[in-house]
Design a protein around this nucleic acid. Structure first.
Lengths: 185, 185
DNA sequence: TACGTTCTTGACCATGGAGTCAAGTAACGC
DNA sequence: GCGTTACTTGACTCCATGGTCAAGAACGTA
């Protein structure tokens, strides 16, 4: 793989930037034409530089989501109470899904073929399961909530958000507290 | 509007039947070509007989859903306890959504232009709100659950089901009990 | 049976998105 | 500056879906 020519390198950067903006605003399912337009480049160039839609997404998804996920994991870890840890984790992921349609698409696995994406998703999942187990051992969360249930809590939220994106953040949050409440012992 | 010719009448019936089967199995968003194939007729005939996709749906949605909804309303009404009434209502609607993708599409308003559909949907909604109010007056359901929340509970379930249709009925039911549990006082 | 009317057909148009490629353009090395 | 080679373009194909219509088929009545 030889070095890119100057204009090509410039374009790669421009496309990355545009993809970040566009995906951030409208989710990972946005047509590539819009990314191309935002980057001031033709669709063909995107394919030449990145190879496929998937590859472009893989190239930006880390910047788009990984940092936010890491921050959540870190912030949540600092809580003492196992129940608080678990509930804060859930709530923050849910809010991330609300705030970033793209993050939502990642969690929902709207693009099932991407390795990057799956990795990210699995990582969060594993962390959540640990929290769940701890909270259950402490007797704070109902013992019949399974790890699979946890996955569904996130997946379903994603689907729900895609279907009803117009709800206000406070309303959204309030409804989620009901949901959390139902998970307690 | 003069009487239909024999073959035309036969076709209308066949199309209705096929639409019922196909929509029942795969929801209201199934391409009309499949209905046409199932009816042994060309797509054009459907349009000639019914005018539009909407009109075809309107022509079968009643048989598809109305009866089920009526049955739920009736069955639920016979319970004494306001909380039981409310919770049974929710649970049965949720199960209807699970059992019948088409019913789900109705509730989710996948086809927003249909009068029939909207009517049906509103009717169920109004009934649910009454139950909610009664249950709240009896102190059995948390008072900060609004009628809008109730709408979202159904809407979201629909979206969630479309996204994850592979879950088993027992699992689905179990998860819903968690949700219900969170709505209590 | 014959003929006018009703009905059906399937090829056709339109839309919108993914992905491709021959031909034109511009950077880089000399 | 000039030729080579990398790069970009946008028009193209393909696919799926909703919807239309002129021409041919079927009905049913006289």
């Amino acid at each position: 793989m030889t070095r890119l020519r100057a204009d090509a390198a410039r374009n790669v950067e421009g496309i990355r930037r545009a993809a970040l903006d566009v995906f951030r605003a409208s989710g990972l399912t946005t047509p590539l034409d819009e990314v191309a337009k935002a980057a001031g480049v033709s669709k063909g160039t995107i394919y030449h530089r990145f190879g496929s839609r998937q590859a472009l997404i893989d190239a930006v998804v880390d910047d788009l989501v990984a940092e936010r996920l890491r921050a959540i994991i870190e912030a949540v870890s600092s809580f003492d109470d196992p129940r608080t840890r678990f509930e804060e984790y859930l709530m923050r992921i849910w809010l991330l899904q609300y705030d970033e349609p793209a993050a939502n698409d990642v969690l929902v696995r709207a693009l099932p073929d991407s390795v990057q994406l799956t990795t990210l998703c699995d990582k969060a999942n594993r962390f959540g399961r640990q929290l769940l187990e701890a909270a259950q051992s402490a007797g704070a969360i109902r013992p019949d909530l399974t790890p699979t249930d946890l996955t569904y809590l996130l997946l379903e939220r994603g689907a729900a958000l895609r279907a009803c994106p117009e709800q206000s953040r406070p309303d959204y949050t309030r409804r989620l507290t009901f949901l959390l409440h139902g998970l307690r012992t």
